[in-house]
Write a protein that binds this DNA or RNA. Sequence first.
DNA 1: AGCTTTGCTATTAAAATTATAGCATCATGA
DNA 2: TCATGATGCTATAATTTTAATAGCAAAGCT
Lengths: 114, 114
Amino acid sequence: MKIPVPGQPVRGSKTGQPIMALLDLLGRSWAMGIIWHLYSGPSTFRDLQEYCESISPNTLNTRLKELRECHLITRTMDGYSLTEYGVELFELLRPMGSWARHSWAKSFENDNQT
Amino acid sequence: MKIPVPGQPVRGSKTGQPIMALLDLLGRSWAMGIIWHLYSGPSTFRDLQEYCESISPNTLNTRLKELRECHLITRTMDGYSLTEYGVELFELLRPMGSWARHSWAKSFENDNQT
DNA sequence: AGCTTTGCTATTAAAATTATAGCATCATGA
DNA sequence: TCATGATGCTATAATTTTAATAGCAAAGCT
C-alpha cells in the first residue's frame, strides 16, 4: 500500500493536502491503535502484537514501517516509540477518549428501542 | 463488517472500551473523510461519491450505514448530514487539519537526504 | 552448547475495497 | 404522457488488505 505523504496524491486528494494524507494514514487498520498504545511507553514488536489482539505480524510490520516513514514513531533501544510528532498527534487524539466515553457512548444507551 | 459499538467487543478491546470502538469505526476507509466533508454541509450520495474520488458505491453505502448506526450522521432532505455527535467529533478532528499542514507536513521537507 | 526472546518473513486463507454496469424511483419538462 | 435526468442504491467480479499460522535468524542468557 502506498504510503501517504503530504504533497503527493493520496486517498481523497490528488494534490496531497496534508490533512488528507493524514486521514489516509490513520484510516488504516490499527494505525491509531498503535499510536494510542505507544503513548503509554515504548513497546517491543511482540508487545504490540499482544496489545493488538488480532493483528497479524505482516500488518503490524507494514503499519510500523508506514508510521516510521511518516515520522510518527521511531525505534529506540526500548522498542518502538512515539516521536515528537507522534506525541503531538496523540495529544490531538486524546480528547477523543473522554468524548467517546462521556458523550458518544451515552448515545447507545437507548438503542434497544422499537 | 461488524459495526463497532461501545460496550461490545471491537478491534483492540474485548470489553468494547468506547475509545477502541471509536478507533475501530474511524479506522475504516473513508470514515474520517466522510465526516470531514460533511462538516461543510449536507451532501447527496452522489456528491460524496464524487468527493471520495475512488470509493465504490458499496463501500460508501457500508460506511454510511455504520456512521448512521453509530449516530454520527443522519439523512435529511438535503442528503446525508452530520448529527450533533458528528459535529462534536468533527470538532475534535479539526485541529488535525492545521497540525498536519503547519507541523507534520514540514517534517517531510528534508526527506530527500542520504 | 542449549534455551528463550525478539523481530520479523513466508504462505495461505479470508475479508474488505474497488471497478463497473445497471436498475428502480422520483421529479421535471416538453 | 412520455422522455430525460438525477438519485440512491444493488449485483457481480476483480483486486487489494488483512488475518492466521508456522517458523527462521540473530541476540542474549545460563
